[in-house]
Amino acid sequence: MQIEVSGITKRFGSVLAVDGLSFSVRPGAVTGFVGPNGAGKSTTMRVMLALDRADSGQATFDGHRYRELADPMRSVGALLDAEGVHPRRSARNHLAMFAATNRIPDARVDEVLGLVGLADVATRRAGGFSLGMSQHLGLALALLGDPPVMILDEPANGLDPEGILWIRRSMRYLADQGRSVFVSSHLLSELGQVVDELVVIGKGRLLASGSLHDVLGTQGRPLVTVVSPDARRLGELIARTGAAVVVDDVGAEGGGVEGGGAGESLRLDVTGLDAASVGELAAANGIVLHELTPREPSLEDAFLRLTSKTQEFRAGEAGS
């Protein structure tokens, strides 16, 4: 089932939360949805699920708006707020009441509780669940209708490493079954390991979308880490090629090198020149290298570059 988001705009009073956002989510892929805090990710997901009313634009699932879907849990499974559970209601009853409204057989309730590992606590009150268990219950609710589309808002929240691995594998498994999996997460390293496609937003606007390879390839230039006792001279040589050089993470980028003195073994982070070129440049100038490591551009690198101008607030720089 294809998801099409077309020109969604949502305003809360004077705050423009989502601004003409458009993107697609295709079946058989895990599509990551990333953006800084306050970028409009959750609002977009709520609009997609008809929980928030868009000022303009729409989201469709194979051409149908969410409200038009008969028994919507059979078409779209959603995990938005895992802690939205009556504390005195059992996990089983929590799922059973939603299953009933969408004509989902009771047997499926026990099936999904088993799938998420909550079968043993099915009759326990959900109020006693840990955040991780609540997250599992939320995922069970999303899976209840065996839907072709999954919309997951921060599904790894509160999960231990084993739970995060389980979520990652589950998303991959669901996508490999041909489902459309649309997931937001601030755990970019985790997301980077599982997503096929990315939608990056900032201040409610689309910053980039496409395959993970495309987004990283266009935004993350080659990265190389170099350690040399003659780092300053090497850094200056590299900078002359137009590549950006950072010394020990405190140097200036591009056009020059700061930090460290001649003869010290310092680390250089080079952006825009591949490892082979750096090695050849060092050899041609008789510079000794202690380390030369090509690095793949990470999702964090691409994310930070894409969103650096759109963050409404950010933590202070270390040491500032």
């Binding site: 969410y66 409200r67 707020d81 939205g84 559970v85 009556h86 504390p87 409204t101």
Partner: peptide, 18 residues
């Protein structure tokens, strides 16, 4: 009102959007 208090109303409206 209890559905709003405990946050189950969102899941309720996703299961029955009308």
């Amino acid at each position: 009102a209890q559905e709003y208090r405990f946050g189950t109303i969102r899941a309720t409206f996703t299961s029955v959007p009308d």
